[in-house]
Design a protein around this nucleic acid. Structure first.
Lengths: 237, 237
DNA sequence: GCCTAAAGAATGGCATACCGTTTTTTGGCG
DNA sequence: CGCCAAAAAACGGTATGCCATTCTTTAGGC
């Protein structure tokens, strides 16, 4: 895993210091380099990144609006802690979004796009057969993100990405200890088949069910009816 | 319409200046007191609200993350301009969210909750018969928001609220000139009937179709398949 | 020896100052 | 009279300073 430094992302000079700082923090939070609940002291971090407190504070506000940190009055910013109920609720919304993204994807994607998805799927299958959880996770993510991206709906893409980041850590940890790996793999096969057939409704339903079962374990009071499911670890960043 | 002042929302002293400023700006933007594309000079606004530039800038970052303003490097904040394509994309996501909210609502809501929805519906019908667009709009909004709220899924509620605010102005303007009023009213009747019957899937489909058609006029390239619909003007916060 | 309270250190909130860029105004030239 | 260029004003970006609150540490009492 490569070290995360400030100074990547800034493709052109269109990004200000605040965006760099925000990207840096976002990456570290998503990648679990900061523990949930951990305080983020603005002075210390600002010093480490060699910026003043002002851009640091503004970055906190952005991350707070994205749901990655929580700012308490007079106590500053802490890394957001996602409760089991939060996981369940957010995962449900994510499944709804991916379902509709899949429908749009089937309608919009080119044959080459579908082929690329299949290629990723087989790469993932290879990682599965090698018991390579790291790459399995990465490719699984890539597939889900690609499907959303192929929806062509920018609002959908953006909301999905934000929500997905909020669950990244949980998803990653879940991937490491998940045992029902082969079930998830089978579901992915079904998804890819429906995708190849361009059956939008079918892909949507498979995908939603796939995602739904994944997070059952986190279910708390669980409003009756809310479809939930079985682990395999989903899209991110 | 009551004047919007800083100093409401702050239920207890748990809110900092930044939140007050953000709420103030949010309200004014949503209520169309600032035109899309209009610049928001931080010094002037800060002076008007009698705060320093710091909280003003931090509020801008929050609003930018919420999609209500756009911050350009070295040019500051401007009120976000929602393009026709944006409207179409965001409305689509909104319809997807409300569809699933309706399903959860049918599963979770108490009989009293449903009764209250029906009461709002009849109030809205009264406004419709009186050609009272103002109250029709307000009540229509209230109904949609209530349905989402009754989903019990906080993540869904929050995302819906954020997205809904981004479309508030367009929705409001659309309400004023919309002619297919009675069609929307009929659709609402159908929604309420399905809601009373607790037929989640049916409510969801009606609602999504209802919302879909509403925004047809904004459709641009329109990914084939993306269900769209007919005006009646939707939820908002 | 442990719990508690007070003092000091650390921290966050807000205001202000300074700098470089952008925008506007104005004065001169075509 | 209009257009362009240069200067001045305005503005956004970042750094820093001050104050109030919170946290930590330590000293005193039970």
């Amino acid at each position: 895993m490569t070290a995360i430094t400030m100074d990547e992302a800034a493709v052109d000079a269109r990004e200000g210091l605040v965006e760099k700082v925000a990207n840096y923090l976002r990456e570290h939070i998503v990648m679990d380099h900061f523990q949930p609940g951990q305080r983020l002291p603005e002075r210390k971090l600002a010093e480490e990144l060699d910026v003043s407190r002002t851009p640091m504070r503004e970055a906190f506000k952005i991350l707070a609006a994205e749901g990655l940190v929580v700012i308490s009055p007079r106590r500053g910013a802490v890394v957001a802690d996602v409760s089991p109920q939060d996981v369940q609720e957010k995962a449900y919304v994510l499944s709804v979004l991916e379902q509709s993204a899949a429908e749009l994807c089937c309608a919009n994607a080119s044959d080459d796009d579908i082929a690329e998805l299949q290629a990723l799927h087989f790469e993932m299958k290879a990682a599965f057969l090698r018991r390579d959880r790291q790459n399995y996770f990465r490719l699984n993510q890539a597939i889900h993100n690609r499907i959303v991206s192929l929806s062509g709906n920018n609002s959908l893409i953006e909301i999905h990405a934000t929500l997905s980041r909020q669950l990244y850590r949980v998803r990653y940890l879940s991937n490491l200890k998940n045992e029902k790996w082969s079930v998830a793999m089978d579901e992915h096969e079904a998804i890819m088949a429906a995708l190849e057939a361009r059956d939008g409704k079918q892909v949507g339903n498979e995908l939603r069910n796939h995602l739904g079962k994944t997070w059952m374990k986190y279910a708390n009071p669980a409003p009756k009816d809310q479809p939930l499911a079985d682990v395999d670890t989903e899209s991110g960043q």
